[in-house]
Every structure is written in structure tokens, then in C-alpha cells.
Simulated scan of single mutants.
Amino acid sequence: MSPGPGAFGARLRTWRRMNGIKQEALAHVLGVSQTAISIWENGHDLPSAARLVRIESLMAKVASSELAVERLFVERQQGVRALFDADGTRLLAVSRGYRALWPQTAELQGSFFVEYLVNEARHITTTPALAQAILSGDLVLASGYSLRMTSLQLDEMVPHRWHACFRRYGARTIVDVVTEPGEDARETGIDDLVYLDDIRPE
């Protein structure tokens, strides 16, 4: 199923900006005018089928390299950090600190967590407006405090503050979660949502 002009345009714009690619440079690579890029990004039209395939291939190639580096970077860290693919909430990589805190859960790399999500994690993934904002690249950061994010009873429950960053890698949305163990007494919930429009320079 091919993407609609609006969804494709938003994804192209987010990918281009996050990779620091100017419209003029992308237009040169694709052999089109800057106006064509602008039209696509604003959702007024789609590229031809051949150009659409070329754009998707370019996005996937860049994304694959970037994601491989990102996974390696996360795996070497002592802090508590994990990477998830938003599609099915698949666990892609965990840091040394994550493995030390939740060793049995860390063994589930490659597994899908979506059916086990509870509390704040479930709220973000099942609230239509939030899920759509994440997939379109509009919602970029979320923070909160939780006692448990999944129903899995593999490891000890640890109250924790978390920060989730949502990034596009080609057609994929990756969730980078950093966790800080906290106190039992704090109120749980999502306390901050940051949208791309909130951080764009004037």
C-alpha cells in the first residue's frame, strides 16, 4: 500500500531535517527542482513511482547505517538505556546498565513487547493522537515516572524516571529510552511531552 501525500510528505520532511539535508541538496540528488521537494513535503503531491522507490531506498540506506551505529553506542553504555522499534515495540538493544538492572528482560532482545505494555507505556502507544504524532515525527520527546512499564514478571520492579526520544530512521520510528531509578513515593504518570514545533528555531 503506497503512502498518502500527507503522510509521505511529513515523513520526508522529518527525515530530511533530522539528517541535516537541505531541500536543494535532495533535489539535486533526485534530479528535480526544490519546488518539487516542497510540494511533496507539504502533502500536495507524491513523487513518481520510480522516484518514490529511489527516495525510500535512500532513506533506508542512511537509516540502516545510523541505526547500526546507534545500537553499538547504546550497548557500550553503563547507564540504563534501551532502543525499541516502535512497530510492535520490539527491543533492539540494551545498555550494560539496563542488563545489570533488568537482566532477564534484557535477554528478550528481538522480542515484541506491545501486548505486555502497561501504565504509561501503554497509554503512549494506544492513545491514537499520541501514536500518530510519534509516527509522523511530530512528537519527539516524552518523560514520566513509572513503577512498571510491562506486565512481564521477569525482573524486580524498580520505580524509575524515564525519558523517551522518538526518532525516524527511514521508514522506521525508533524509541530511545533512558531510565533513572527513583523513589517509591513519587506520583506516576507522563509529565512532559515535547513536539517538534516546540523546539524549532524561530
Score class of each variant (00 low, 15 high):
L92K: 01
G170W: 11
A25W: 09
S48W: 13
A86L: 10
Y98L: 12
L193A: 03
E115M: 06
A7S: 08
V32S: 08
E202F: 04
H28P: 02
H28G: 05
T105Y: 07
E24F: 10
A10Q: 12
P128Y: 14
S146G: 05
A49F: 03
E187P: 06
A68P: 05
T179H: 08
H44Y: 12
R13W: 09
E70G: 01
A133M: 13
I37K: 05
E202L: 04
R99Y: 04
S95I: 03
A27T: 03
D198M: 10
G31C: 15
T173M: 07
E75M: 07
A7W: 00
Q78P: 12
T188K: 09
V118G: 01
Y116H: 06
R99G: 00
T126M: 13
I37Q: 08
S57M: 00
S38V: 14
Q153F: 12
E180Y: 12
L154I: 12
D85I: 09
D87V: 09
T173I: 15
A25D: 04
R11C: 04
V175F: 07
T126S: 15
D198F: 08
V118N: 01
L141V: 11
S151W: 08
A27Y: 12
H163P: 00
E75Y: 02
F84C: 00
R81Y: 11
G79D: 14
P3Q: 09
I37R: 03
A185Y: 12
A100D: 12
P159S: 05
L154V: 13
K61Y: 02
L147W: 00
E107M: 15
Y145K: 04
A10W: 01
V158H: 09
D155I: 02
S33T: 14
L92W: 05
F166H: 03
I21C: 03
L147I: 00
V53K: 07
R200E: 15
Q34E: 11
S57K: 03
W162Q: 02
V178S: 08
L147C: 02
R13V: 02
K22S: 14
F8I: 04
A142N: 03
S38R: 14
D192S: 06
L108S: 15
L52P: 06
A10G: 04
D45T: 11
R148F: 01
L26S: 04
V178M: 14
E107H: 15
V140F: 05
T173Y: 01
R13E: 00
L117I: 12
L30E: 06
R161S: 05
L147A: 05
F113T: 01
A133F: 06
P103K: 04
T105V: 00
R17M: 07
A7H: 06
G137Q: 07
N119R: 03
F166N: 08
D138F: 10
L135G: 07
E70L: 15
V140E: 12
H123R: 13
